[in-house]
Design a binder for these strands. Structure first.
Length: 557
RNA sequence: GGCGGAGUAGCUCAGUGGUAGAGCAGGGGACUCAUAAGCCCUUGGUCGCAGGUCCGAAUCCUGCCUCCGCUACCA
């Protein structure tokens, strides 16, 4: 199958209610690596991420801090962008639900649903927890004192009645089931698909898409009588209420690529190739969102990938639990590329994984400092010492044992990347790194060098071949791992004395597959000065010191 | 409660009928190019429990125990 010429991928937009946690940016780091992989392969890539900024809670928090909601989210967004910069995340657009074009896109989605007969006025009523919003009866606990929210037992519940617009999700059950049947892998991993299919088969209820009493939101564009809620002066009639935040949030995926104002751009990028989301919002993305798109007459995304959570001692890392790591601390301790690597290697992309400072440091030292970093360092040092810094060429594929190992490693790596198993994709590359380290000990270049100095021409030739193979191995791993290690990849190329043709976001060079062939590097030239790419981290205590007070999760003591 | 998944070495996991595996962590060794890294060897498991089928079960069947996911409007 030919590679698609364009690739559009998204993350869920992050809820801008407080500073970002590592567990939130994990998803963005994974998406960024996939985006870079596509850019380097030569695909025209559009990577969208951003922030979800409307909600009653945000308005409440802002008010408590004496700020306007807008001023508050501006501050939060700045924190997200700074943390993402630290992780070398390079979106093609950072979308905010407060962006003006997004408001217009949401209005268009609402109008289309209305025109399609999928919106009607109804009444929503139920127990309302001031901290969490409306609660389903099954989510409440009842005792002698009455009914309360299990998460906020001290907060008194209110019985509220809202007149809302409802979306006719019930009308989409069959169409969704058919879509699932005709696109069996559109939700992955498979068990996540099965959960949603089971949910659909239970029958679907309509859901509300407006809120009467949530002023911090996108104005609902339609009055109860079906007329526009926009007034002559351009403002929106507050009587119409606001758009339910999930309807708003999901729409960001089409806003980001030009809906509805730039039809050419939208036609080029939509449907999305990939939505990457957390398992907690699976239903929104694989039931509600496709129904919204069907209603609007738009094609459905090709794939939704549901990743797992970061766990701390078996519990979900989250801001409310307070057991989260600050991404800035992790970057300070491990570096940008080190942080990206340990996150994506240590956490399985298809399920939950326990993380800790200890596991990060061990992974960093074992894989980056000891295995790969040291391989680069020892290979360059030997070339500098034994060959006077002249860059030796790799041997031909048929006489280079590492070339065979590379072919296998690359095939495994690409298979895992295509399946979004990022941790396994890295593991495949690192098996090759281990093979290269074994190769050094098997060949003993220092012994060859000694023989060569003694006038053994065959040993001298073999030495050049062995070192050429090793530098080639380093070049190949550096390039293949570049979506994960974008900064180090460029530095490594400099040390190896080979060009690095890709730009800061991974775009601009030749298709990666060409440069990943054994022997595809330039010939001749000189190597640079070896400088450790990943300085070894000595102790956890040292790390904890660097990490500061925010680094609570898994810190000893 | 219903549906689904999992329990294998200290940790994370692979292994769907034929003499228990990997990585990391732990122990020992030889080497020296290297970030005291790398390489080689190695300790360690009644494969959740109890039955059953089979010449043979981590693997199939039954029951039980434990854990997890989904079971609709915080985002």
């Amino acid at each position: 199958m030919p590679e698609p010429h364009r690739y559009y991928l998204t993350t869920a937009i992050a809820y801008a209610n407080s500073r970002p946690g590592l567990h939130t940016l994990y998803e963005v780091v994974g998406a960024d690596a996939i985006a870079r992989w596509h850019r380097m392969r030569g695909d025209d890539t559009f990577f969208l991420t951003g922030t979800d900024e409307y909600s009653v809670n945000i308005a409440t928090t802002a008010s408590r801090l004496g700020k306007t909601p807008r001023a508050f989210v501006d501050e939060m967004v700045e924190l997200f962008r700074t943390a993402e910069d630290g992780l070398a995340i390079a979106p093609d657009r950072f979308i905010r639900t407060t962006d003006p074009d997004h408001v217009r896109a949401v209005h268009e989605m609402i109008r289309r649903a209305y025109a399609n007969g999928d919106l009607y006025q109804g009444t929503y009523e139920g127990w309302y927890c001031p901290n969490e919003g409306f609660k389903a009866p099954s989510d409440l606990v009842e005792d002698a004192g009455g009914v309360h929210c299990p998460n906020h037992p001290g907060v008194e519940l209110q019985w509220l009645t809202e007149r809302n617009w409802f979306f006719r999700l019930s009308a989409y059950q069959e169409r969704l089931e058919r879509y699932y049947a005709e696109h069996p892998d559109w939700v992955q991993p498979e068990y996540r698909r099965n959960e949603m299919l089971g949910f659909i088969r239970q029958g679907l209820e309509d859901f509300s898409v407006s809120r009467e009493k949530a002023p911090w939101g996108i104005p609902f564009p339609i009055m109860p009588d079906g007329s526009s809620s926009q007034r002559p002066d351009g403002s929106w009639d507050p009587e119409a209420g606001t758009v339910y935040v999930w309807f708003d949030a999901l729409t960001n995926y089409v806003t980001g690529v030009g809906f509805p104002e730039d039809p050419d751009r939208f036609a080029r990028w939509w449907p999305a190739d990939l939505h990457i989301i957390g398992k907690d919002i699976n239903r929104l993305h694989t039931i509600m969102w496709p129904a919204m798109l069907m209603s609007a007459g738009l094609p459905l995304p090709r794939r939704v990938w549901v990743h797992g959570w970061l766990l701390v001692q078996g519990e979900r890392m989250s801001k409310s639990r307070g057991n989260f790591l600050d991404p800035n601390d992790v970057v300070a301790a491990l570096g940008t590329d080190g942080a990206r690597y340990v996150l994506l290697r240590e956490v399985a992309f298809d399920r939950d994984s326990d993380v800790s400072w200890d596991s990060f440091v061990r992974r960093y030292n074992a894989d980056l400092a000891n295995d790969f970093g040291n391989l680069v360092n020892r290979s360059l040092s030997m070339a500098g010492r034994y060959l006077d810094g002249a860059r030796p060429e790799a041997r031909a594929e048929f006489e280079a044992p590492l070339a065979t190992a590379w072919r296998q490693a690359l095939a495994a790596h690409e298979e895992k990347m295509s399946a979004f198993l990022l941790h396994d994709a890295l593991a495949a590359l690192w098996e090759f790194v281990a093979a290269a380290n074994r190769f050094v000990d098997a060949e003993q270049p220092w012994a060859l060098a000694k023989a060569a100095r003694g006038g053994d021409d065959a040993a001298a030739a073999r030495l050049r071949g062995v070192l050429g193979d090793l530098l080639e191995a380093c070049r190949l791993v550096g390039l293949a791992a570049a979506p994960f290690l974008p900064n180090v990849a460029a530095r490594l190329a400099g040390q190896l004395g080979v060009p690095y043709p890709y730009g800061p976001t991974g775009a601009g060079g030749p298709p990666l597959v060409e440069l990943l062939r054994w022997g595809a590097g330039p010939t001749g030239g000189r190597i640079g000065t070896p400088v450790p790419l990943f300085p070894r981290l000595e102790t956890e205590a040292q790390l904890a010191g660097q990490a500061g007070p925010g680094g609570a999760a898994g810190t000893p003591g």
